[in-house]
């Protein structure tokens, strides 16, 4: 897990979210349907979807954590790492870019000093370029904590950021229970080795299986420069299949006699 996570009181979060989660479950014929609403409920309180939140959702819905995490990871609005207090999501789709969104987005990034999927050092702003927000008549547009800001200009961006820094902006900041890291993007985790494989070299390391195969191939080529002919699938299946059947039939005959 992310090293930036700190211990915090999850019981208080649970006290707030659990009754709501139980109510959400009753709205659906099958309780798994409440997964997205429950994750939303946790994110509304914590500002992100924490591992504890995913564990709790799994327990309530009889789902393994792996299923919860897999589902949460599908949706871009669930943040599985802490984010800034203001989630700035400008549009980068067609109607906005032909109306100057690349310029306003570059300006916004410049003012923040961060790039796509990054959070500022002070934990105040997160920046993510998003796809069409269904507000193309007021392009370029963006969302701040999912509230719309229309007709972006550098001046409007300056005023907006100043108000956010001063704490006077009219969209409430997201709750922040943990200091965010530079990025909330969750990539693949480095794969651990199973205990039995610890002393075995990786396939492509010198002496590994892949390496040995490669060496064997080179040695073979040195002995016999004729390249190995790979036969077409059909031929392999039909000819080899017949040969195998014949061989098996021969064995059966032999064993019968």
């Amino acid at each position: 897990m992310n090293g930036a996570l700190e211990r915090r009181d999850f019981h208080e979060v649970l006290r707030q979210v659990k009754p709501e989660a139980e109510r959400l479950i009753t709205l659906y014929p099958e309780k798994r349907s409440a997964l997205l609403p429950i994750l939303h409920a946790f994110q509304n309180v914590e500002g992100w979807v924490s591992p504890e939140a995913m564990d709790t959702a799994g327990e309530m819905l009889d789902l393994p954590r792996s299923v919860v995490e897999s589902t949460a990871s599908f949706y871009s609005l669930f943040f599985r790492r802490p984010v800034g207090k203001y989630m700035l999501q400008p549009c980068r789709n067609l109607s906005c870019i032909i109306n100057g969104a690349y310029e306003t987005n570059a300006y916004l990034r410049g003012q923040l000093g961060v790039g796509h999927l990054e959070t500022t050092e002070d934990g105040l702003f997160s920046y993510e370029e998003v796809e069409c927000l269904a507000a193309c008549d007021r392009a370029p547009c963006m969302q701040v904590n999912l509230e719309f800001v229309y007709d972006l200009t550098p001046q409007k961006i300056d005023e907006m950021l100043a108000a956010m820094r001063a704490g006077t902006y009219d969209v409430a900041p997201l709750p922040q229970t943990v200091k965010p890291a530079r990025s909330w993007h969750v990539g693949p985790e480095p794969m651990g080795k199973s205990p039995g494989a610890r002393d075995v070299p990786d396939p492509n390391d010198p002496g590994g299986l892949g390496d040995r195969t490669g060496v064997a191939m080179l040695e073979r080529l040195a002995r016999d420069p004729e390249p190995i002919r790979v036969r077409p699938t059909r031929e392999r299946l039909v000819v080899d299949g017949d040969a195998i059947l014949e061989a098996e039939a021969g064995e059966v005959e032999r064993s019968e006699h």
Binding site: P37, H40, Y75, L77, F78, V130, E131
Partner: peptide, 10 residues
């Protein structure tokens, strides 16, 4: 009637 909210996926 149940009102359901998605979570960001075209």
């Amino acid at each position: 009637v149940t009102v359901h909210r998605g979570a960001g996926a075209y």
